[in-house]
Design a protein around this nucleic acid. Structure first.
Lengths: 234, 234
DNA sequence: GTCTATAACTAGATAGAC
DNA sequence: GTCTATCTAGTTATAGAC
């Protein structure tokens, strides 16, 4: 709202500092003891503020999860950009992107259950399909667009445009599986990724088949029709 | 634990009666005011018991949801059996089964959001994939088996065995969509069902294609491999 | 007017007596 | 089996400090 006081970087106001310290306290406690065991009182104490003050910045405990969400999305983006350098095969690029996500979130596996619990409530702004999540969703889909565009693969026109969003949806499925994965070192999720990515790409090739293409077209019009129904009543 | 006292029907013990009255009170309150607004104190009061006593029968508020779950599953089963009589076309039978579910659950749409929130926590016994839900899941898959077996469709051997479970998984997807559906009279979900069931059946036909069959085989072995990974570490 | 703190409220859950 | 009394933790009301 006001001009910057010193350098070009945003000057951290007192409020922003307090806000950051609350998020830091929350995330470190979540990682140490899990979501449920981390009380708002403990979070506030570690952040060096009162409970009431914490609620001035975050209107609920669940809202603190958004901090986790944002931070990890940014870290994943950076890591994927590095790992993708020099890789041109589409299947490999997709694997790299998913593995980067997996590694970036390794420490939050237990915590993710709570996250999913919140995210799957359609009324919650944390839902990946909600309008509040539109920014994060678009960023993630944009990441997939880079994966596709940086590859040397020939993609059928039938689904060229929709592929990044489709891959994001596929990723949501992988995440859902990951949350339930109890295997050592997430071996099951890694196997799932390694095996399904090639299948998915073969399915993309199928989409050029006339028979399949018909179904794809049906799906596209269906989605358009559904969007209309969902939006009209508001 | 004891021999029946009178007729062949199970004699309702005192505990069973109390248990039933708590569930009745809970479900009626949920329907009236929603899940969150229905406090355990209000439920206990309507049931004519103390809060502590309610917790003697149900170890958490969420556990009361299982009552809703069981009751509706039974009602859906009965309704579907009637509606399916005389219908032989597989696509139509699948539609009938899904519409029966939809109609049976029409009154619980808002409440279902909470249900989903609970069910999607992998740690929760309410998850449709949990071992605690195995009974309900098997009943639902059995219902789909009746849908398939009562039809005159020729189903490729490739997936004959897996089709009922596949259809149940598809139904879980429909339910997920339904929970998010804000359209008048669930028009969007009905459209989704009417359009995707034929697509699904056409996809089943595809599974006979050699190219596609290969992918199906890959999927089957993948699932077997995943099961092994998930089960070993316990 | 933006922050911050203390005290109180609410509702899920538990302990222990009867 | 059932109750009363109590605990815990998320949330809010409200008053005051910068």
């Amino acid at each position: 709202m006001m001009a910057a006081t010193t350098s070009g970087v945003t000057p951290p106001t007192k409020g922003e500092q307090t806000r950051a310290s609350i998020i830091d306290a929350a995330l470190s406690l979540f990682e140490e003891s899990g979501y449920d065991a981390s009380t708002m009182r403990a979070i506030a104490e570690r952040a060096g503020v009162s409970v009431g003050n914490a609620y001035y910045y975050f209107s609920s405990k669940e809202e603190l999860i958004q901090g986790f969400y944002d931070r990890n999305a940014a870290q994943h983006e950076a890591r994927a950009a590095v790992d993708l350098e020099g890789v041109t095969d589409l299947v490999e690029r997709a694997r790299v992107n998913l593995r980067a996500w997996l590694d970036e979130n390794a420490g939050f596996h237990e915590f993710a259950g709570v996250f999913l619990r919140t995210a799957s409530d359609p009324a919650s702004p944390m839902s990946p399909f909600s309008s509040e999540s539109a920014g994060a969703r678009d960023r993630a889909i944009g990441g997939w667009r880079l994966v596709v565009e940086g590859s040397d693969a020939a993609i059928p026109d039938t689904i060229r445009e929709e592929l990044p969003e489709l891959l994001w949806l596929y990723q949501m499925g992988i995440v859902l599986f990951w949350v339930h994965d109890r295997s050592e070192g997430m071996a099951a999720t890694r196997l799932l990724i390694d095996r399904t990515v090639p299948m998915l790409m073969r399915a993309v090739e199928f989409s050029a088949l006339p028979m399949v293409r018909e179904v794809v077209n049906d799906l596209v019009t269906l989605i358009a029709d559904l969007r209309r129904l969902q939006i009209e009543p508001a």
